[in-house]
Amino acid sequence: MSKHTLSVMVENEPGVLSRVAGLFSGRGFNINSLNVAPTLEKDVSLMTIVAEGDDAIIEQIVKQLRKLIPTIKVKDLTELNSVDREMVLIKVNAEDSKRAEILRIVDIFRCKVVDVSADELTIEITGDQSKIGAIVNLLTRFGIKEIARTGNVAMQRSMQIEL
């Protein structure tokens, strides 16, 4: 079992999200995250789907996605050199005694504080999965009250070199 990030270009038409979601639920495929947004072309949307499965299952997922009539293109970014990012908002307990330490973590990870109250901080983090995993881990011990994640978005690199 491994995670694959799929970039799926679809016609931006009613029902297309439900076709994709129905494909995953109807066939029992595992979906980790799904992100949909418009592109520069007004009738095209881009979905980024993180799916989990062995090679045969991922192959089926890719083929089944291609088979949907409104699908224009499917790329398995895991097999290509790509960048991927997720944005996460985390509301964490931050009494006075803990605040300094939390801010230090925020600093180290180059995140942003986007909201403050007497005993909470809301932090915005953007990064790849390992960075997000790491910071979520570090903040857990302070008590995470709420977390909202966008799901991964990803893109194939133009030049096949890691920056």
Partner: peptide, 16 residues
Amino acid sequence: IVGITRPCTKHNYLVQ
């Protein structure tokens, strides 16, 4: 009916 038949049609349309 478009929702109901999505998994059992090759494709379907609601004309809007």
